[in-house]
Design a protein around this nucleic acid. Sequence first.
DNA 1: GATTAATTACTGACCGTTCAGTAATTAATT
DNA 2: AATTAATTACTGAACGGTCAGTAATTAATC
Lengths: 216, 216
Amino acid sequence: MAQAVTQRKRRAKPRWQRRKDERPAELLAAALEVFVEKGFAATKLADVARRAGVTKGTVYLYFDSKEALFKAVVRETIVPVIAQGEALARAFTGSARELVERLVREYWRLVGETALAGIPKLMMAEAATFPELTRFYYDEVVTRGHRLMAGVIERGIKNGEFRPVDVMVAAKLAMSPLIHATVARRAFASCMPETFNVQQYLDTHIDLYLHGITTQ
Amino acid sequence: MAQAVTQRKRRAKPRWQRRKDERPAELLAAALEVFVEKGFAATKLADVARRAGVTKGTVYLYFDSKEALFKAVVRETIVPVIAQGEALARAFTGSARELVERLVREYWRLVGETALAGIPKLMMAEAATFPELTRFYYDEVVTRGHRLMAGVIERGIKNGEFRPVDVMVAAKLAMSPLIHATVARRAFASCMPETFNVQQYLDTHIDLYLHGITTQ
DNA sequence: GATTAATTACTGACCGTTCAGTAATTAATT
DNA sequence: AATTAATTACTGAACGGTCAGTAATTAATC
């Protein structure tokens, strides 16, 4: 008791701190983790709050509802990555082959091996529950990503590097092994043998894909 | 009132029928639908029951719990498909190229465009919740499927049709665009333009993949 | 000491699960 | 064949735990 008072006097440990500015981002990061792990319905806001170092009531100071929190997680975490990819493609000066490889590896660096990898999984799982969010995601992430890749492939066809193929279909085929790997890797993390080598998977995909689409 | 009696006498419509044998399969089919649409946590057993033409209590005559129902859905619907694929490969006499194409198309016919397409989506979404079921699925479906395809690719390498590659990695790359398409197609059904042509997607995948892996 | 970020305690709806009761079916008896 | 007894598949109301959301309270910061 005396010690508690001492601690109080010394301000050793205030029971909590007021950190209005940092809370939203911290809550979003925590929410991403829990939503990805448990799915929307099974996620408890008390869990999210605890992981962000606060209690449930605090969540409601920054987000209107569980659903609003979920939507914010998706909207605010993934779009910047697409923009980054577009910027990369715009600035790139090498061949189409090189750019395809670069984009694939960059996707893995920025999404595949980070916490963002959970977003595709989440969207697949919860799409039916949030039609409006799904539309947003499909337009602003999926289609935009495909268009980005399709542009590169079109470049490659025009300058004779690539065979003439439907560019949107080819773009989807360049991306789908990546998306699937991000999703499957998280889902089956505990099952996969340690021998599985993601880097080799990427290398082989790039090799087979470019070999497949290159003229001759 | 008089009419009710008449109906009763004619046995026009009993309020329900006793159909012990058919119930389990009907419940499993209904459960697959709802689980795929809503996810495990958001699925209400009352919904499943209604869709199977019974009430909630009946579910518990045939399955111990919601969890048991979920596990039964996965275990009893997907394994037969793998076995069918293995049989197909065993009986096949043509080239490795042809067999790869055949397996890809068969997967789509038996899984991609049927209700079974929901299973991969479910497993990705709920893997973290059911570790033991996930292990089962990973061993009996994922790995077995990959081994099947890897065997075919190995044949192709040995007889000179294919370039020497890591056969397991190549197998995963043959399948991943399919799995991703089955999952994404359901999730984004309402968003996809009608112009999207699955058949073309499959054709192009087969074309690019075989072109990529073929010697020369 | 005024402001407000944060906690704490509470409410009400929802849903998995249970089980007493009911109606469909089968079998025994006349 | 008709009647009645026994069986059991199925129903639906009720229970109890969980959790999103809210209101009251506390305490950190300026």
